[in-house]
Nucleic acid binder design. Structure first.
Length: 187
DNA sequence: CTATTGATGTTCT
DNA sequence: GAACATCAATAGA
């Protein structure tokens, strides 16, 4: 993935990331769930303008936006410029699964090691030190998908404002989603 | 299987 | 103070 890949419409990027494989220092998997947020969106951290926390969202496309949520967990986004970003919500583990299992300290099946934004960050070792760092350079690495995935769209998870906007995208049928696929699917 | 609750700290009003 | 792009453990059907 190069910088131009991320510097597009945020919904386009959110859909284009499904099926792409992301690793951090060689640990990771295939992206199966994303959500789009932009500056005109009441649910977005960027809606009320720049702040100390969301500065990365207003920086260049192709950087990480990492924030702490509920005091306990982290969430990873890829920025698309102009206050827009895609939240990476779930991966299907493929690379260095043993490392992810150790970091997560769980007996859950492999498929669930990165099934959720907080779980994903813990498995990949992502914390606030990664905020505002470039995504087109180590430790980040990307592998393009080679076939067009079957994507379903639905409402985003865990928000209260703009709760009906269908900007959550999932790889249909994946066992690694943070929740089941939305009922209404759209290609 | 679904529903509920506690943990925990930063950001925003 | 309240809200928060969450998770794991527990209780009940």
């Amino acid at each position: 993935m190069n910088r131009a890949f991320f510097a597009r419409d945020v919904v386009t990027v959110a859909r284009a990331l499904i099926g792409v494989t992301l690793t951090v220092s060689g640990v990771g998997g295939t992206i199966v769930e994303t959500e789009a947020y932009d500056a005109t969106d009441p649910a977005s951290h960027s809606f009320s303008g720049p702040s100390a926390r969301n500065a990365a969202m207003f920086g260049p496309a192709g950087t990480a936006y990492v924030y702490r949520i509920y005091g306990l967990h982290h969430c990873l986004n890829v920025t698309c410029g102009e206050g827009a970003a895609v939240l990476i919500r779930a991966l299907a583990p493929t690379d260095s699964i043993a490392v992810m299992r150790m970091r997560r300290a769980t007996s859950q099946p492999d498929a669930l090691l990165c099934a959720g934004p907080g779980r994903l960050c813990k498995a990949l070792g992502i914390d606030l030190a990664f905020d505002a760092t470039p995504l087109d350079a180590p430790p980040f690495a990307w592998r393009n998908r080679h076939t067009e995935p079957l994507i379903a769209a639905g409402p985003r998870i865990g928000i209260t404002r703009a709760a009906e906007v269908p900007w959550r995208f999932v790889l249909q049928g994946s066992p690694s989603l943070s929740r089941r696929a939305p009922p209404a699917s759209r290609a």
